[in-house]
Design a protein around this nucleic acid. Sequence first.
DNA 1: TTCTTTGCTTACTTACTAGTAAGTAAAATA
DNA 2: TATTTTACTTACTAGTAAGTAAGCAAAGAA
Lengths: 198, 198
Amino acid sequence: MTQQATPPVTPADTRARILDLAENLLLERGFNAFSYQHIARELGMKPAAIHYHYPSKDDLGTAIVARQLRRLRKWRDLPRVAELRPNQQLEALFAVYDTHLGHDRRVCLFGALAADFRTLPAPMQAELRTFNRELTEWLAQVLAVGRATGTLRFVGSPAAKAAQVLTTLAGALQVARVHDETPFQVIVGQLRLELFAQ
Amino acid sequence: MTQQATPPVTPADTRARILDLAENLLLERGFNAFSYQHIARELGMKPAAIHYHYPSKDDLGTAIVARQLRRLRKWRDLPRVAELRPNQQLEALFAVYDTHLGHDRRVCLFGALAADFRTLPAPMQAELRTFNRELTEWLAQVLAVGRATGTLRFVGSPAAKAAQVLTTLAGALQVARVHDETPFQVIVGQLRLELFAQ
DNA sequence: TTCTTTGCTTACTTACTAGTAAGTAAAATA
DNA sequence: TATTTTACTTACTAGTAAGTAAGCAAAGAA
């Protein structure tokens, strides 16, 4: 076997890889069901090495949510997304949730943390609240414009509809985990049927 | 202080009280965030006493879900529920979820277990699948009759709508936990607005 | 070239986890 | 009344959790 030309793992890489692995474990098993040992083993390191980068599990958990919040803001403001018409923006949102299915039926961040919410460190709770609030506000705006321009259809206030749709999407990924992909597709199909005009 | 005339705690009581406490802890903190010690402390007993009644945590967890399944079947078949008209049956379902809010914003069984699903013992997973399936089938029937008799209104298949509504309700309790009661009321209000004809 | 910082490992502590085995007092049964 | 069963406690095992402190090799900076 000749030596593999794998690029060297820089310190910054390690920090990011820890965060990636932790996020994966969080979305697959929940915050209280993964440990520094799980991460360390997959990285071929010792648990203490993880503590070097993220001193406490609180820090690590908070970093995961903070990164997702940064990603949300970035995604939302991407020209590719921001310049779409409302019905296409909604379809783009569905696509994000659909992606989770492909990744071993991972639930979304909110769905992963809501049940264990009271056992989470306070900064993590705060970040998750902000995450959910900003996402809901964004969707409410999308829905409002969509209805005004005739590409989307619903009754009630955009804010209420946005809260309902996001809640349904988070729940749909959970149902997919418990059963299989089918109920997720059925539920999102129902959302499409109701929301898209014509 | 004169002696209190508290009724004696019978063995059967203890078993039920353990199950009650465990269910409470499960719905408040998640399956992986409570231990036999938590239960024992609140009962004024030693953890080993809990093992006497429920040898393993798997047994205890499975017993919780099995009891909820029995309760669902009992509730569903209650004359007080079974003899209602579909729109009233739906309102009765909403009332059950509303009750959770009053109990310290407990999430529902499904919402409590879905995220950690992969870390659950197999028998617990099986019971939860049955629970969710039976509840969905019941609601699908309610919706089908409701639409046929003109008291409920929706597009698409009753099965798809039932899956969507239940998913939304489970998610709404999770949102209530992360924020406060308001989003739950908003979401259920939206469901009422859409489902109840006129 | 020396000094400092970085990114770890080794070795450890404290606390908690599920679970077991043996003993015991009281109640139920024969 | 003697025996067994019930419902525990005490005392333990073995494993895992988060977290810390000290040491160390390599890289970077002075």
